[in-house]
């Protein structure tokens, strides 16, 4: 028997919607686990990604921590896949990109109505700092495959993964390739 394919997943600046879609593969998920082992993923609690065949990345890159994790995945995964609109083009979070981050922080923490008096921009070293702009992951690391969609339909993920595992170049036909 062929050894199982090892997959790691993570959500950067994403909403877990893509992970939900992955879980939506439903019954077929059982077939999937015959073929794959999951390394670090929000669906288990492995803390650090180890050497993997495939890394599935949900979400764009909006802070320093996202960058560290993304690079870690790139280092450990033979194949890196951008899953979902946010990983592919920044998605909703990137719609702040035409604004200056400084103005946003000021507005959110200092000038918007309803804030407690003396509100300040948090400077806790535990919190990851936001980047000047939100980036899709291919602007930070080399990405091998893209599965667009918000979220990608479960069928698209299934088709993609089964193609990949079977050693075929993944192809998403009409109805499976979606940007929305």
């Amino acid at each position: 028997m062929k050894s199982k394919v090892k997959i790691a997943t993570t959500s950067l600046a994403g909403c877990f919607g893509c992970h939900m879609s992955l879980l939506d593969i439903d019954l077929r998920l059982l077939d999937l686990v015959q073929l794959v082992d999951f390394d670090r993923s929000p669906i288990n609690d492995i803390k650090r990604v180890g050497a993997c065949d495939v890394g599935l990345i949900e979400g764009g890159v909006c802070n320093a921590e996202n960058i560290e994790i993304l690079r870690d995945y790139r280092k450990h995964c033979k194949i890196l896949v951008a899953v979902g609109a946010c990983a592919v083009n920044g998605g909703l979070p990137a719609q702040r990109n035409h604004l200056d981050l400084r103005d946003i922080l000021e507005e959110v923490y200092q000038t918007s109505p309803g804030l407690a008096p003396g509100s300040a921009i948090p400077n806790d070293p535990e919190l990851p700092l936001p980047l000047n702009k939100v980036h899709p992951i291919h602007e930070i690391v080399r990405v091998d495959y893209f599965v667009p969609g918000c979220p990608p339909p479960a069928d698209a993920l299934w088709k993609f993964l089964t193609d990949l595992i079977a050693g075929r170049t993944p192809v998403l036909g009409h109805g499976l390739l979606h940007y929305d």
Partner: peptide, 10 residues
């Protein structure tokens, strides 16, 4: 499958 290039975010 992807926008490939860096976005201009105009």
């Amino acid at each position: 499958m992807s926008p490939h290039f860096d976005h201009f975010f105009p």
